[in-house]
Every structure is written in structure tokens, then in C-alpha cells.
């Protein structure tokens, strides 16, 4: 901690998570925590399975009952939900649902046109541009059940892009995807960052990829660390989050741990 200087924040915090905690049927799922996010920040949310990463994302979105406040530009986020794009975990979706790639990406335009309005020309143009960005134009009429894991993840990335949000919350987007999809997602993240968008990406994997983030949040029911990757990825932090009995793969490497 303490390696961030004032110069690291060029913008005032856009997203403020203030004292947010979650109780689930009398059990505390998330200890109270406070985090600020600046515009143009790519933040990784890491921690073991069951650490409460998805719960934190859902609490920020107001999808689970939580105490505390979540502000976007100083106002409650729950009244500006169209500003947030949410990419759920792939396992949360029924991929046998009878619909096509095109229809799912078009859902991303729901917020800006008003949920009750049918998608007009502008919405379709935006959905098409998003499809091009995630390289799925050729598959747009395919049933979502006939896609590979990586393609399914790209459909949801495309839906988020079609929304043209300012804040992106992605739940385990790298799970079970191919190299092409991984490279494409990282490129999209960089491009969004350059446009001043804020991204929070959660992942239970611990590896070199984490160096790509501006900042890492280490979570296990409580916020254990909030710092630059090199500051978070220490042996001490790993033990605090994952316990002592981790498997050492390469004792001398920088990141010798698998979870």
C-alpha cells in the first residue's frame, strides 16, 4: 500500500463505493468496504472462489440488497443504470435459450433507446458496429447455443459495447475462452481505457495477465489489498487471501502460484 501518489489520479473519482457490505440471510458475505474508481482506470478484482467478487459487482449494480452507498459522479448509481454495462458470468446464462447472436447484442441498446421502444436504425447501427468490434458479424444469425465458449463471451462483450456505457463491470470474462478471444478482450479494454471508460474485471485466476491492470483489488470477504499489481501480488497477500496451502509451481518465478 502507499505506492499511489496524488499524481496517479488525473480525474476525480467517478465511481465511489462507500462502506458497502452485504448480508445474505444473516450471514455476512462482504465486510464493509470503500473503493474509489477514476475515469480511464482498468481495475482487476481478484480473490479465491467464494470470496464475494460476484457479490461485490452485484452490490455495486444494486442487484443484491446491500448497505452503504454507490455514487456515480456524485449521484446514486442505481438511478443511472444505463451508464453501466454488466457482463455476467457465462455460467449464469442458459445457452440453450432460443435466440441469436444479433438479438443478444441488440439488447445492449435497450438502455439508451428506452426499454419499451423497439430498436431503430441508430440502435441497429450501434449493434452492428459492436459485432464488428468482437468479430462476430459472420455469426450474427447463429443460435447462441451453437457458439464456442470464447464466442459466447464475445457476444456479451459485444452487448456491453453496444450499450456505450461509461463503466464496465465484467464477471470472470476470461474463464474458458480461447487465445483469440483473450487477446481481443484485452485490446478492447485498452481502447475503452483510452476513451476514459472505467473497467472493473473480476477473475479468480492468478497469473501474468494481472500485470495488465492499473490496479488490483484483493478480496476475500473483505478488501485485503488495493494497490498496483506489483504491490498486491506479494507472497504475504497471497497467503492472506488464499491460505497457506498453495501449490508452488516454480519456486523462483515472480508469480509461482496457482489456485
Amino acid at each position: 500500500m502507499g505506492t499511489l501518489t496524488e499524481n496517479d489520479y488525473h480525474f476525480p473519482p467517478m465511481l465511489e463505493v462507500q462502506n458497502v457490505s452485504v448480508n445474505y440471510r444473516g450471514v455476512r458475505a462482504l465486510e464493509p468496504l470503500s473503493i474509489d474508481f477514476a475515469a480511464g482506470e482498468l481495475v482487476g478484482l481478484i480473490g479465491p472462489n467464494g470470496a464475494g467478487k460476484s457479490t461485490l459487482i452485484k452490490a455495486i449494480l444494486g442487484l443484491v440488497p446491500a448497505s452503504g452507498r454507490v455514487l456515480w459522479n456524485g449521484l446514486p448509481l442505481r438511478r443511472q443504470r444505463q451508464r453501466v454495462a454488466y457482463v455476467p458470468q457465462r455460467s449464469q446464462i442458459d445457452w440453450d435459450y432460443p435466440t441469436t447472436v444479433w438479438n443478444v447484442v441488440l439488447m445492449g441498446t435497450t438502455a439508451l433507446r428506452g426499454w419499451w421502444r423497439p430498436p431503430g436504425r441508430e440502435a441497429q447501427r450501434r449493434a452492428y458496429a459492436a459485432l464488428e468490434r468482437v468479430d462476430l458479424v459472420g455469426l450474427r444469425d447463429r443460435a447462441i447455443g451453437a457458439l464456442s465458449g470464447g464466442q459466447q463471451q464475445r457476444v456479451f462483450l459485444g452487448r456491453a459495447l453496444a450499450q456505450q456505457a461509461d463503466l464496465f463491470l465484467l464477471d470472470e470474462p476470461f474463464t474458458g475462452v480461447d487465445r483469440k478471444t483473450e487477446a481481443m478482450m484485452l485490446a478492447v479494454f485498452s481502447a475503452l481505457k483510452a476513451q476514459g471508460k472505467t473497467l472493473l474485471v473480476c477473475s479468480h485466476e492468478w497469473g501474468d495477465r494481472l500485470q495488465q491492470y492499473d490496479r488490483l483489488l484483493l478480496l476475500n470477504q473483505q478488501l485485503l489489498a488495493d494497490d498496483r499489481p506489483e504491490g498486491v501480488m506479494t507472497l504475504e497477500n497471497i497467503h492472506r487471501a488464499y491460505g497457506q496451502n498453495l501449490q508452488l509451481v516454480k519456486p523462483s518465478a515472480d508469480l509461482p502460484f496457482v489456485c
Binding site: K58, L61, L63, R81, Q82, V84, Y86, P88, Q92, I93, D94, Y97, T99, V104, M107, T110, A111, W115, R159, Q163
Partner: peptide
């Protein structure tokens, strides 16, 4: 199709 996604939006 995606109730949480719809609520989030």
C-alpha cells in the same frame, strides 16, 4: 434470457 442483465440495465 438474462434477468440480472436486464435489471442491471
Amino acid at each position: 434470457f438474462d434477468r440480472l442483465g436486464a435489471e442491471a440495465m
